[in-house]
Simulated assay, not measured.
Amino acid sequence: MAVAVPSALRISARRLSDSRGLMSLMLTASLFGPLVAPWEIRPVKAVPAPASVLSSQLSSQSFVAGAVARSGPAVVTLETQRTVRASAGNGLPQGLLMDPFFQRFFGLQGQPSPRSRVERGQGSGVIFDAQGLVLTNAHVVENTDQVTVGLPDGRRVSGQVVGQDSVTDLAVVKLKGGNSWPTAPLGNSDQLRVGDWAIAVGNPFGLENTVTLGIVSNLNRNVSQLGIQGKRLDLIQTDAAINPGNSGGPLLNASGEVVGINTLVRSGPGAGLGFAIPINRAKTIAMQLVEQGRASHPMVGIGLSSIPASAPGGVTPPGAVVRSVVSGGPAARGGLQVNDVIVAVAGVAVKSPAEVVTAIDRSGVGRPLELRVERQGRSLPITVTPVDMRALKMR
């Protein structure tokens, strides 16, 4: 067994071959206390840590438990049921199948009529209002005939879809009956930083009340970077494990506040990446769904792309190039032209098409918005008034 020896003692021990070395050893021993033979082992007495230190260690190790205790009672399971009609007759139109002539011609006489089947699904959600309002993903409750909500305390109640928005993949479900519902506190996703703790709570693969821990890996990850089109979302990226069934469940911060709604996972060799809708965005959409039954999405009627790389090294300059302008839309009426480069929105510089879309989306419908554009070497202010996406599509 190795015995720790002071460095001065080790140096002197190497000099035992002469008398001066022995004198040096004795002098060193007198300085450091009595000599200890190599075969003599003296136990080191443990000094107990102060109670305050132990308390701080325990609290730092159990912050996840505290966070889950705060919001966990409001995390629910959503069991959905939808009826799907299965067609018969080799893909022939149902109108033709009802005609006896076509039934004889195609040899379909005596075949059973089209049958329906029931598809069941499962997802997660979080109660954000004491009136029994549940925030979840639109893809969890889309086209459902029946929604059953399971609470952590064992209660199972029926739910009604109040509204859903496919553009942001958000939906609100109202619990039926009862008046005592646990709620989760909502945080501020704008205050998140990369590296903050992230706690995912949900029901992956039907395993209720599953908790996983990670960090915020990135912020403002545009959904188009994931190869998903038709959505208008900037997502929170996290390495907290998110799996099928987690959809619609909350992403919590270290204080147990909901900072995101888990929406998708991108899996790959070795690891998976999870993504959540920022709660500030989700709150805005949820209020619109509750009050109007639908959400509005501002648009100005332009198509955008990144500025082609021109600097040495292929660096893409900041901003967005206007590639198309919808005739009669807000952008056309405001004077925006193809090949204009948008460099700022509402006085804030933008680096990419995604940032332009996000800035327009935050401005709201019907509010004038100033764009700063560069056109043939000139810097111009252009004012546009966004309209709702549905109104623009009807043109």
Rank of each mutant, 00 (worst) to 15 (best):
D361L: 12
R378S: 11
R155D: 02
A8Q: 11
L251V: 12
F205D: 07
D99F: 03
P298M: 10
V387D: 00
D165G: 06
S7K: 11
I285C: 04
A286D: 00
A200G: 07
S247P: 05
A346S: 14
S12H: 01
P48S: 07
P330Q: 04
T358M: 10
V350L: 05
Q146G: 01
E291G: 04
T210Y: 02
E208C: 00
T316H: 11
M389E: 12
G227F: 02
I236D: 05
L78P: 07
I279M: 08
L235C: 08
G202V: 05
S324P: 02
A138F: 00
V356T: 09
S306G: 15
A29V: 04
S116C: 07
P114Q: 10
R20C: 03
A332K: 05
F205I: 09
M26S: 12
A4V: 03
N203F: 01
R120K: 15
L58A: 14
V387E: 08
P152W: 01
L336E: 02
R156N: 06
D239G: 08
V259A: 11
V216R: 05
F128V: 14
S87M: 10
I236P: 07
R221A: 05
G256E: 07
G95Q: 15
V211S: 02
S17W: 03
V173H: 03
I228K: 09
S71Y: 02
S59D: 12
R390Y: 00
G366W: 00
G256F: 06
G125A: 04
A171L: 04
V211N: 03
G110N: 14
S52T: 15
F63W: 15
T28R: 14
N188E: 09
G248N: 09
I228N: 06
R20T: 10
N218K: 11
A69S: 11
V356N: 08
R221S: 10
A344S: 13
A241E: 06
R372K: 15
L97P: 12
T263W: 03
V315L: 10
L22K: 12
G319L: 07
S62V: 13
E79S: 15
P185H: 04
L135C: 04
P318R: 13
V53M: 13
N280M: 05
A4C: 00
D18R: 14
L233S: 07
Q103Y: 00
R117N: 11
D169S: 06
Q376S: 12
V322C: 06
P43F: 00
L92I: 12
N339H: 07
G347H: 05
E142M: 12
G249D: 05
L9G: 01
P34N: 06
L233T: 03
L78D: 01
N188M: 08
V315D: 02
G150M: 07
T168R: 12
V265H: 03
